[in-house]
Design a protein around this nucleic acid. Structure first.
Lengths: 342, 342
DNA sequence: CTGAAAGCGCTTACAG
DNA sequence: CTGAAAGCGCTTACAG
């Protein structure tokens, strides 16, 4: 039962009498091999449980068939919820996934020395902006790279982004349309461009309608942060009728925090999030949110990557895909008329 | 800026005048190398950005430094919430993680032909029971393997499990102690041993106290499943005072479903879950649950694995770690006295 | 259609 | 303390 050494192409060669070259060609469906030979070899390989050693293959082909996923820490549930989908897209293309974490406070460049040893075919970066230095290293090693939800630091790198600014605009327009006039924004971590873009879109619409922002508070990507911030928000409620949080997970915390103060959502205040995580649809929250087009985001990212793996000279692209405003019952119309908004 | 070929040990050799052997030894801190030589080589390596090719190294050492994580589909949020922690433990040990998904209805054995090509040092299997056939293949290839939360199909494989049965017992004892007498169990997928063990412990205590189970319904690992099942549960509520669901995610769905029927949790019914996912602590649910000792589960799994990677002859172990009953406000005491329980 | 040979980039006995 | 050589298990021109 316990075999000491795994079979190699040599083993199959000895067993069938064909050379290692022929074994290799037969097994990968190379055209110039006779049907009889091919079948004989495939049968023998199956019998002894032979499969080519991917490490040896990578060394000669200089293709590992593995792509790296570089993830920032503590990004909330949105990215983890996409793992299965990502793995599915990669599997379809016979690609494997290797995971890398960038600890808080560190840069992509810090883990690159390790990552680069593994001769990956490409990499995906999510929830994290690589520094220009990291981008330079990536480019020098000609490693095809696609950012998810970040703008590339230089023009060697691809990106697929949810249109965060447009999403922020949609939220503002919707809130104004439904009669909200006293708005607060709960920002994400200061260094996250996503939250900045969402805010920029949101604020632009407020300015266009000459509606001032009543309150701006700063959170991160944790439920607890929303919970805490709700104290500040609750204190302003008489003069506040809607809160827009930069991410769903924080918005959910805000809702629970507001309720702890005896306030009703949406009775007293409307709350809107951004992302479309699973929990946003739970009846306990029924969060109105901008749903990121996760399927498109992931499938486009994989396509951009595989195109550049196939041909490194395909020029980099940056793709924007639009989020969709999903109206649930954490928001409700205020006042009588729409009062000036669009 | 664009370098055609990555530097190899040959490059460093040419630059420093030392042989590839010496380069290799110097860079990995081999003892018998003079200080001057070592420093010279390290400096040169840094200058040209040389790092050894892990693929070539793996081929000769027969150690890839990569472990595989095999995950079942649709297992709820518990495992995804542990990714960061797992990656942390592996990074500490200079190990990388490659991810594999087993599609619904398929067995571990189906993805093994692909996984085995990558010459992994070991693998972790979570949310999934490998078939005996899969275990046999793993053993034949002498691939150190640790199951998380599943009993091994044979005695070649290690496992770390939360003591699910003890957890189920704790829930039953707590519910009886607090005066509940009319209980329902919401099972997980029929093929998940975790739900069976939780149920076994729960039922054993009910039997010991001669308390019959009023209702048993069958769910899976999705929030929506709890939501739907709540219809059935709500219909029995006059005669039901507590519901134990096999997983938190389903318990949360049950709570929202019950509330949709105008029932109060815990006012009309208590609800208990199992797992200790993040959302169980959200004030909107404040779910009483058995918290799995995630940190211990993961760190022990990694230790068992690395021990067997270091020495394949260390005999397999199965470790149980206990969950902790976390009492929150989705449950409350019923009636007057404890009424016979304990 | 098939094989012998070279080579991918390392590591590691074996010598010295 | 250092180097020359062999070899890990493949693939791929190059021949025939």
């Amino acid at each position: 039962m316990e075999r000491q050494n795994r079979p190699t192409s040599e083993t199959v060669s000895l067993r069938t009498g064909f050379s290692k070259s022929t074994i290799s060609r037969a097994l990968k469906g190379h055209p110039g091999i006779s049907k009889a030979t091919r079948e004989r070899i495939i049968a023998a390989a199956r019998e002894i449980g032979y499969a080519p050693n991917a490490v040896a293959r990578s060394l000669v082909t200089k293709r590992s068939g593995v792509i790296g996923l570089i993830l920032g820490t503590t990004s909330g549930p949105f990215y983890p919820e996409q793992f299965g989908r990502l793995l599915g897209h990669l599997t379809t293309r016979n690609l494997q996934l290797m995971m890398f974490h960038v600890p808080k406070g560190q840069d992509v460049a810090d883990i690159l020395p390790i990552l680069l040893q593994y001769q990956l075919d490409g990499c995906l970066i999510a929830a994290l902006s690589p520094s220009p230095a990291a981008a330079t290293i990536l480019a020098r090693h000609r490693l095809p790279t696609v950012l998810i939800n970040r703008l590339p630091p230089d023009d060697h790198i691809c990106a697929v982004l949810c249109n965060n600014e447009a999403g922020g605009r949609q939220v503002a327009e919707y809130l104004l349309d439904t009669g909200h006039r006293h708005l607060a924004y709960v920002a994400g971590p200061a260094d996250a461009p996503t939250t900045r873009d969402r805010e920029a879109g949101f604020m632009a619409v407020l300015r266009e309608h000459s509606v001032p922002l009543r309150l701006r508070v700063q959170g991160d990507y944790a439920f607890e942060s929303g919970l805490r911030l709700a104290d500040e928000l609750a204190a302003c409620v008489p003069e506040l009728d809607a809160v827009f949080a930069a991410s769903d997970i924080v918005a959910l915390g805000v809702i629970d925090g507001l309720r702890a103060h005896g306030l009703e959502v949406p009775g007293d205040v409307s709350v809107v999030g951004f992302d479309g995580i699973h929990a946003s649809s739970w009846p306990g929250y029924a969060l109105t949110t901008v749903t990121q087009p996760a399927e498109t985001l992931i499938s486009r990212a994989v396509s951009l990557l595989t195109e550049r793996i196939a041909d490194p000279d395909v020029p980099p692209e940056t793709l924007y895909v639009s989020g969709r405003l999903t109206i649930r019952s954490s928001t409700r119309a205020r006042g009588l008329g729409a009062g000036g908004a669009s």
